[in-house]
């Protein structure tokens, strides 16, 4: 890692920056929490948290906003990782929000719980009085995210106001809040998809098996391969077939698409990503295809 001319590799710089951000939050906020879904970005974020406070345990709980439409392999992984760390996991359930009448389930062929997550998340932040919430979002993911701060201020309605963001200079972050407001913190802001994979390889981090090539029953919709599952309404024009696929992102099972791939190892995934010409959200997220500003609109409402 260290060379005599004090050059620092990109992963070391990104890790040092993320560790610094996490320690700032732990030092300056009363009640932080870290969003952990079992997806690769949150797995990397959790590893960085482990490093930031070692040899002490991570000084905040983890939270998963659970749509109920999960890949079982991911939930199994999530629970195992939480147990290994001896961490506390809060599961905020979209089903509970539906049962409580906070949100209404969408219906029809394109029904998804993706948008409903926002209410569940905001309610959980309020109920637990969280003042800082770590998310694994990266700026290279999407153009609205490209302009979001590392410390992203949210008012008492959880809203993001892109035109009124706090300037962020050097490594100085403004953590001041009034009661009821919170900050979303994105320690991986400057990482790219490839950085995430390089880091997973370098650190030998375990990830859920659905990221690697496997045979799955899928059907095609809007040029994406969606897994056949109990929560999705398929049309007769959408026949199921077997395909060798893997997931580039892990989200709600009803709107996360798989890509055809034979990549069975982290090395092969890195090779594949280095050569790919489509972004991970463009390839695999129906939720971002709704409109040009789909992500911006959801973020304004309080989405991750």
């Amino acid at each position: 890692m260290l060379q005599r001319d004090y050059t620092t590799s990109q992963l070391d710089v990104l890790e040092a920056e993320a560790v610094h951000i996490m320690r700032e939050v732990a030092a300056e906020f009363e009640r932080p929490c870290l969003l952990f879904s079992g997806g690769k970005d949150s797995i990397v974020m959790l590893r960085v948290a482990e490093k930031a406070f070692w040899p002490a345990p991570i000084p905040f709980p983890l939270m998963h906003v659970d749509t109920g439409h999960n890949f079982p392999e991911v939930i199994e992984f999530r629970d195992r990782r939480v147990a290994e760390l001896g961490a506390r996991l809060i599961v905020a359930s979209v089903q509970d929000s539906i049962d409580a009448g906070r949100v209404v389930e969408e219906t029809g062929r394109r029904a998804s719980r993706n948008r409903l997550q926002t209410t569940t998340l905001l309610d959980a932040i309020e109920d637990n009085e969280f003042d800082a919430v770590f998310g694994g979002a990266r700026r290279d993911e999407e153009k609205a995210r490209a302009k979001e701060r590392v410390f992203s201020f949210r008012d008492e309605f959880g809203q993001w106001d892109p035109k009124n963001q706090r300037p962020e200079l050097w490594n100085l972050y403004n953590a001041r809040l009034r009661k009821g407001e919170n900050i979303r913190v994105f320690p991986l802001s400057n990482w790219t998809e490839l950085d995430i994979w390089d880091y997973i390889r370098r650190e030998g981090i375990e990830i859920p098996p659905i990221y690697f090539a496997h045979t799955r029953k899928v059907f095609e919709r809007d040029g994406m391969l969606l897994a056949d599952n109990p929560w999705i309404t398929r049309g007769e024009d959408e026949p199921v077939f077997d395909a060798v696929v893997r997931y580039r992102t892990v989200g709600d099972a009803t709107c996360t698409g798989a890509v055809e791939s034979a990549a069975a190892t982290v090395e092969e995934i890195i090779e594949e990503i280095a050569a790919t010409r489509i972004t991970e959200r463009g390839a695999t997220r129906a939720d971002d295809r709704a409109s040009e500003a789909a992500m911006e609109d959801r973020k304004r409402e309080g989405y991750f």
């Binding site: 609205a144 302009k147 892109p162 035109k163 500003a293 911006e296």
Partner: peptide, 28 residues
């Protein structure tokens, strides 16, 4: 590509710092 926010697209201006990423074999 860089003017990502709705207001920017509507007004044809850039209103905030946008961060973009690329890499060559030598540097990120």
């Amino acid at each position: 590509l860089t003017d990502g926010l709705r207001a920017e697209r509507e007004q044809g201006i850039t209103i905030d710092v946008a961060y973009r990423y690329f890499a060559t074999p030598k540097r990120k």
